[in-house]
Design a protein around this nucleic acid. Structure first.
Lengths: 338, 338
DNA sequence: ATGAAAGCGCTAACAG
DNA sequence: CTGTTAGCGCTTTCAT
């Protein structure tokens, strides 16, 4: 706030050249003699010159930010996602502008629109509430948008893992360990992730010749308290020996409910989660779960916007395969190990 | 990327006035007749005009962002902090630009400098690695900087809770429940938070006439694996019946270590944590801990930068008092309840 | 009360 | 290879 920052003009004066020459060497645009280049460069370093991003953006028509919209910034899942994004963005000149929609649709829409208008040259949207049409409407300039957590079939630039496969793996693992009454704590049935997981659960069941029993499936909301409530509901219904939980946070809540009802894990109830958040390994017993490479997904999402923004950006090779992480929350019901 | 966005010029043409008039009504600067005001306003709405923040910033000399530098974006503690910041920033036109230093000093310094130069009109720095002098050096324009997690005595605009008091409360609680061999898992002894907590621990001890025994204190790094290792070290030393843990994440790791050595919590070892992160209540047994109002601290930090930026901004009334949350990880050793 | 014009700092033709 | 000039979109004197 004190003295003016040094401008390109200052550099040009010190170097004894015109501003356009300075601009040329700084951006390596246009031809420059070796002598003047050095001259300018030393002048710039000497003055610690930093181009004004506003002026630059004004002429280049770019805001300079990548906007990210997640339901919550906090939380074990999205935090890691953001970290992945930041990891690739830090190699660029784009800044990371984050916003959270707090699970509110109007809020999401408004904030995303604001982001697109004021802050971002491209956005990453992790959520299900806004459809392709919604997004198009708030994005009149057709800036790159990558969407996470929606059906790849319906949206372009959608990044995700194969949730169906993950759920299949989880359920299959339970079946292989002799479980046949397998409950499922699910999410909002209107969303793609939830449906995919349900589908994977069902596929494993039917493949093993096990019936699908709707009384064993309860919807919740992917939070710890939600998982707690869901487990309570399950406990009041038909008997089961295992739960496949839609995410680890709900598994955490379920653990609590199970303990409150004196059910031992895994002796009385086995449990498999989804996501493999950091804390899963510290649960007691350590949670067997499906690992989702959320950090890598953040990197992939960021790389994708960057690539959409600039054809020369390298695509990051990212394995977006879910993988079962075996820990100690599943009891083997079979006499011989599978 | 397709058609140009509408500019103030477009609005002025539609309204049949000059651009300066439009600017005046939009910013309520200068006198305007009621008629032209309405005229301009309707033209603006009709065109869905959004001022270009770059052009605006260029003339007003403001970047438009509040930069936040935390060690990690992910994680149960800083995520909530960021959420608090976002909460107050969303009421303003400032964007939230986040960066993480990944625990690397040079990285922090460089990134913070970059933020100050390119993105932010003010920054919030949560960390201990950069001193007042370091900060001053990278902040030639004297932009507002609020610092978290350092000694309030040494830095202006420092926001924090009374860690010493929190630690005192925790240790005192243990003592009141009949514990006298109380171990402490600490952090980097060079940092202010860690020293404060240690001081609170010592004060409670000496106040109760209990000796301070250095063999019962081990330093770690505030992570889960760090807590695990620290507990292991403790287990190899003198006997103790309780641990006061520098934060909940290390408590989580300690739980694991204790279980690995067949120590029951709280029957064999009682535990008190610090922070009250979301997961603490889901630990088994639920962790008794010192609640740090980190969300509110985020809000307070943001309000403070805003106030520094603009004298008219209201200061948020925030209670930054630590508070003991009693759950089930402490065994009462006394015959009668305290 | 309103308009004309200068200028924020930078890039990109256009000349030379 | 380098300098001059015209904007980018907006705010703000300075006139009127």
């Amino acid at each position: 706030m004190t003295r003016k920052r040094t401008t390109i003009k200052d550099v040009s004066v010190l170097a004894g050249v015109s501003v356009s020459t300075v601009s040329r060497v700084l951006n390596s645009s246009g031809p420059i003699s070796e002598d003047t280049r050095k001259l300018v460069e030393s002048a710039a370093t000497q003055l610690k010159y930093q181009p004004n991003p506003l002026a630059r953006g004004l002429v280049n028509q770019q805001l300079g930010g990548i906007g990210v919209m997640v339901p919550w910034i906090a939380g074990p899942y999205f935090g890691v996602f953001l970290e992945g994004i930041q990891r690739v963005l830090r190699e660029t000149d784009y800044r990371l502008v984050v916003a959270s929609g707090q699970g509110n649709r109007d809020n999401e829409q408004e904030t995303l629109a604001y982001l697109l208008n004021n802050d971002a040259d491209g956005v990453i949207y992790y959520g299900e509430r806004l459809s392709a049409a919604d997004l198009e409407q708030i994005n009149p300039h057709m800036k790159p948008v990558v969407v996470m957590g929606q059906d790849p079939a319906e949206l372009p630039n959608n990044i995700g893992i194969d949730d169906e496969l993950g759920a299949y793996l989880a359920t299959r693992y339970l079946i292989d360990h002799g479980h046949s009454e397998i409950a499922h704590i699910s999410g909002d049935p209107h969303t793609h992730v939830t449906r995919s997981k349900l589908a994977g659960y069902q596929r494993a069941l039917s493949q093993a010749g096990l019936p699908y029993r709707s009384g064993l499936v309860v919807s919740s909301n992917y939070t710890e308290p939600g998982g707690y409530q869901a487990a309570l509901k399950l406990l009041a219904g038909p008997a089961f020996t295992a739960i496949f939980c839609g995410n680890d946070q709900m598994a955490m809540g379920s653990y609590q409910a199970l303990r409150d009802f004196n059910k031992r894990i895994p002796e009385d109830v086995s449990m498999v989660g989804f996501d493999d958040i950091l804390f899963s390994r510290y649960m007691h017993p350590a949670l067997t779960t499906v690992r989702v490479p959320i950090y890598e997904m953040g990197m992939a999402a960021a790389s994708t916007v960057l690539r959409l923004l600039d054809r020369t950006h390298q695509e990051v090779r990212s394995v977006l395969e879910p993988q079962l992480i075996v820990r100690h929350s599943v009891l083997n019901l079979k006499p011989t190990p599978p």
